[in-house]
Every structure is written in C-alpha cells, then in structure tokens.
Amino acid sequence: MFRKSLLVAVGAAIVVGLSSPVFAQWTPEEPVKIIVPFGAGGSTDTFGRVFASAMEEATGWTVIVENRPGASGVIGQMEVANAEPDGYTVGLSSTSLFSIQPFLPGSTGELQPDSVDFIGTLSVIPYAIVAAADAPFDNLAELVEYTKENGPAKFSATSEQLTLALDQIAEEIGLNFVAAQTSGSGESLQLVAGRHADITISGGVHVAYVLDGRMKVLAHMLDDRADYAPDAMTVEEQGATLPLRNYFLFNVPKNMDTEVKAALADAIDKTINTDPVKDHAKRIHVKLDNLGLEGSSADVAAQAETWRKALSK
C-alpha cells in the first residue's frame, strides 16, 4: 500500500516537475507522531496539541503528540533525529535548540544544526524583557540608568540561550547585569513579581501578567511590537540588534523521501490557516508565520552561523 502510494507520488512528481511546490500525494497509513521534547502543559506542548487536533481535521490523518522531555530538549530531538525517516515521526521544538545550543560551552554537541531537516514553523516565540509593574524603570535606557546607581540588574534567566541573548543586547546598550538561572518561566516570573529579581526574558507566560497590570514590557524581542503591549518599544527601536528569532519549529529525520517531506510540509501549511490554530495564536498573542520547507532550513542555517561565530570567540 505504502509502495503503491509512493509510486503514485513519484509519478505525480514527474508530471509536475521536480521543482517545488511538489503536489504531495503521500498519505500516512499509521498515526503521525509529533514529538515535543519538552514537558506537557508548556507553551510548545500546548501549541503542539492544538495544532495536532487541527491537523487531524484538516487532513484526515491521525496525529498524536508525545512528550519526550529531558536535557533541555536534546533528548527528544535526538529521538527524532534517530527515527526512521518514514514520515511518521515529526519533531516540534524551537530554533535555538539547533542554532545556539550546539555551540554552548557545555554542549557535548550530539545535536547539530544539520541533525534533522526542517519543514516549517508556527510563529516566532514572543520573547520580551519584562519587569514588575512597580519597578522604577520603563525601558532599556532607564534600566541602564537605574543600574548605574543601584548596581547590576538582577536577571532571572530561564535558559542559557536567553542569557546569551541578553548578553548581546547588554553589550550594545551598556547594561551591567548578573544572571541567576531558574528552572522555568514560572519561577522566573515569580522572582520578578516579588521584586527579588529586576528583569527576566519570558516567551509568552508573561502576557497574562502584562495584561492584568502586574508586569510591564521593557522591550519586545521581536521585529515588531506585539499587540498586547503596543506602547513598549522593540529591542531595535532602543538601539540594539535583535539577538534571536526563535520559531516554534517542525523538523523530521534526515534522508526522508522528498514526496513524504513535501506532504508533511503541505499538511503543516494547510493546518496553519485553520480556525483553531488562528484562535490559539490570537489567545497567546503570536503572529502565525510559516517559513515553509526551504525558508525554515535557511533560517536555521543563518542563525546557527551567527551564533557559531559569536560563541567561538
């Protein structure tokens, strides 16, 4: 059955021509498993599950989500990298796992930017530098002023990648800070809300806090201001370069048949435009943005190159 559909797919590819977009003919005969290398209930997992059920409706396939947390996502992504490239295993994680993580000083490097192939993105993770609402600074310049009098800014860091990102921004705007790692965004926000730390970088959990007035955005780490805090400026508006664009990123094992890969990429693209996915994006205040098959590979490669250079210094 699989062979037959493959033959049809190859036939179709010849008719249409080998340049993309290939008209995808492959249909799965088993459930497609999306491996989320983070815990259940997190932002990637939540988005992944909403997406999976929308994908089932849009394609008629059976799509299941499996959490495989550990080693900040490396364990689950290695499982994707080592899976059979038969189209039944798809990974959903984020760009920095491939673009920054391999070059970190402590990394043993089993996961590399080219360990898997990339087939699409959901949106950029809406990172923002946030502080408690009653903190005596409203933007990066005021934060820099504040630290000149009160000593280095206390940064509660949710991941090593985000510390590096803040490092880059700090260098450009002359900010002095100390970083203490936390085990998750919940803990980071708790430290900031209680004013034990001055700032943190959060990837979405903070939105509810900003909306109900307990926290404020000092800078959006996005290309444009996000709609939930339209008055806060972006990092670039405040004189620094945007250090990372972290996408929710779909990936598959290498050496996958072109038709199967195209079919998966098509299904992702089709699902992105469905109402449940749009609704969820609106709820978590992100802009849907699928870079597609080629676009996402190029983006990972470009970001990885930048970070490889920056971190080998």
Binding site: G39, A40, G41, G42, D45, T46, R49, V50, G184, G186, E187, L189, Q190, A193, V205, V207, A208, Y209, L211, D212, R214, H280, R283, I284
Partner: peptide, 23 residues
C-alpha cells in the same frame, strides 16, 4: 498564575488552552 509543581503547570496549561488566564 505561578505553578508550584509540574502537575500544577499542567492544570495551568489546560486553563491557557481554554483561554483562561489564571491570576
């Protein structure tokens, strides 16, 4: 809206999916 344990984070996740922000 601060979960004390992974299990409670999961409950927060459910609330978020249904568009309820705890707090």
């Amino acid at each position: 809206g601060i979960p004390g344990s992974p299990a409670l984070a999961l409950i927060l996740g459910v609330l978020m999916i249904h568009g309820v922000s705890p707090g």
